[in-house]
Design a protein around this nucleic acid. Structure first.
Length: 471
RNA sequence: GGCGACGUAGCAAAGUGGUAAUGCAGCGGUCUGCAAAACCGCGAUUCGCGGGUUCAAAUCCCGCCGUCGCCUCCA
């Protein structure tokens, strides 16, 4: 069964056929590190991490490139207000982001190229476009000649004719057309700048991605991804300049994730989470309160292409979901290894694996995949209640861990109990309470449990004794 | 105004021609000293609204209403 994948370029679901058999070359537009990263950035990283993990699960080798746009107007502006070097600032923020991706269980990409390390390739790219007549220098800048690109607008579904009917575009006398975009910008005092045939300057916004793609993946790739807000102008311009240079199709598939949104408390309007709107929940603040698996479940619970509304109710619901997934990983209480209940469990594993693959093959239906996981959770818990244990039980739990792992879920209950300093004290209270229960002093025993609950510790009495957890 | 996407139970959300997954919340039961967790059972005669195509539509077509994204920096 071949994998089917939605292609923004054709607006259709198409079978995944790769340039090189068994290998997927995937470039994903990363962040511009000028401020703290928020969970919208995390969402995009998680979406493509799941895509990458699933492709690998299906046997592909994935060459996964994620860039940092570390030379940019906003970085320069922020560095100036902070009185620091722009490249130093972006490098520091990029490191922070990489550490957070690790916290979020996002697998490291094959490479994380940066604009500042790709200058020679960018320069050569621009020279190539000038040589072919697709670009022209003007007073130290270089612009792309949009009107020479006959299929400009094919990704975003725009035509040059009706794109510039309004007055949105400032008339820049150096440009031949208001639609032309900068490939190279002349240096201004105090900004990072590099030598070029057109004088000192730095790359424009879109060119760096094309240059990094070609440097790391070649002239053509299988998947180019990013947030849906990048479709225009960023990805449109990448296609224009890349295909103009090579005369080859740049990317076979364009994959775009929907935006994370939230409700503006003042206007009550749903809106995109973005730094410019000032409505961000940072990754750091999210992880201070919730397990990384919770954010991943939020992202997995709907189609990666749809917008996702975030609020605390959503976060709490998904925290409960994680609890339920973890319930299936509790140890068995019996040791039955044969009979009908064992056969039922084994068949539930097979059914779940088949369903999981079937829905994931259909444009990464992660919500369906998570549903399959919950079916397996119920089967495992039922089997435990029926006394199943030993190898068959362990095999079912291993299957749940494996499929969860394909989605990037850690499913690690010990992470909820990070503060191990308190463990001996809680254990002491549990022991005392056990003695109270044995002597039927239930009022006191309940008092201990209630007071611990107020402190955020939940006790659960079971046949194997009492378990505790935070939250 | 232009381009695109979406509207499914209280909430989240899958399903894109064959008669509505899954999770949270809720209700009843089993278990428990009582809880919690787990397990069993219960919920949309119906998929924004109105037409149409079809033996058959949440799924296709047309219109309307509503929401969001992009059109300027943005994952």
């Amino acid at each position: 069964m071949t994998m089917m994948l939605y292609n923004s370029l054709t607006r259709k679901i198409e079978p995944l056929e790769t340039i090189e058999p068994g290998v997927v070359r995937m470039y994903v537009c990363g962040v511009t590190p000028y401020d703290e990263a928020h969970i919208g950035h995390a969402m995009s990283a998680i979406v493509f991490d799941v895509i990458r993990r699933y492709l690998e699960y299906r046997g592909y080798t994935v060459r996964h490139i994620v860039n940092f746009t570390d030379v940019d107007d906003k970085i320069i502006a922020r560095a100036e207000t902070m009185g620091v070097d722009p490249l130093h600032l972006s490098a520091q923020l990029a490191e922070e982001f990489l550490a957070q991706l690790q916290d979020l269980n996002v697998l490291p990409a094959t490479a994380y190229p940066r604009v500042s390390q790709t200058i020679p390739e960018i320069r050569a790219f621009v020279e190539g476009l000038i040589a072919k007549g697709y670009a022209y220098p003007a007073e130290g800048d270089v612009y792309f000649r949009v009107h020479k690109d006959e299929d400009y607008g094919k990704l975003s579904g725009r035509s040059l004719a009706d794109m510039f009917t309004g007055t949105r575009f400032e008339v820049d006398p150096r440009k031949e057309s208001p639609a032309d975009f900068a490939l190279w910008k002349a240096a201004r005092p105090g900004e990072p700048a590099w030598q070029s045939p057109w004088g000192e300057g730095r790359p424009g916004w879109h060119i760096e991605c094309s240059a990094m793609c070609m440097k790391h993946l070649g002239e053509q790739m299988d998947i180019h991804g990013g947030g849906s807000d990048l479709v225009f102008p960023h990805h449109e311009n990448e296609i224009a300049q890349s295909e103009s240079l090579t005369d080859k199709q740049f990317a076979r598939f364009w994959v775009h994730n929907g935006m994370l949104q939230l409700v503006n408390p003042v206007t009550r309007q749903v809106e995109k989470m973005s730094k410019s709107l000032g409505n961000v929940v940072t990754i750091a603040s999210f992880l201070a309160q919730y397990d990384a698996d919770v954010l991943r479940l939020i992202v997995l619970s709907s189609s990666y292409r749809s917008p996702l509304t975030y609020n605390t109710a959503v976060a709490n619901d998904n925290a409960r979901k994680l609890e339920r997934l973890l319930s299936a990983l509790q140890p068995p209480v019996g040791s039955v290894e044969t009979g009908e209940v064992v056969a039922d469990l084994a068949s539930a594993v097979v059914t779940t694996q088949a369903f999981f693959t079937r829905v994931m093959d259909q444009d990464f239906n992660t919500a369906g995949a998570v549903a399959a996981l919950f079916d397996l959770v119920r089967a495992i818990n039922s089997a435990r209640d029926a006394g199943v244990g030993g190898a068959p039980f362990a095999a079912a739990q291993a299957a749940l861990r494996e499929l969860g792992g394909v989605l990037g879920l850690r499913l690690d209950p010990s992470r909820r109990e990070r503060n191990q300093d308190i463990a001996p004290f809680i254990q002491l209270l549990i022991e005392l309470r056990a003695e109270l229960r044995t002597s039927k002093q239930y009022a006191l025993a309940d008092h201990v449990r209630m007071r611990l609950a107020e402190l955020g510790i939940t006790l659960e009495d079971g046949p194997q004794g009492t378990r505790w957890k935070i939250g």
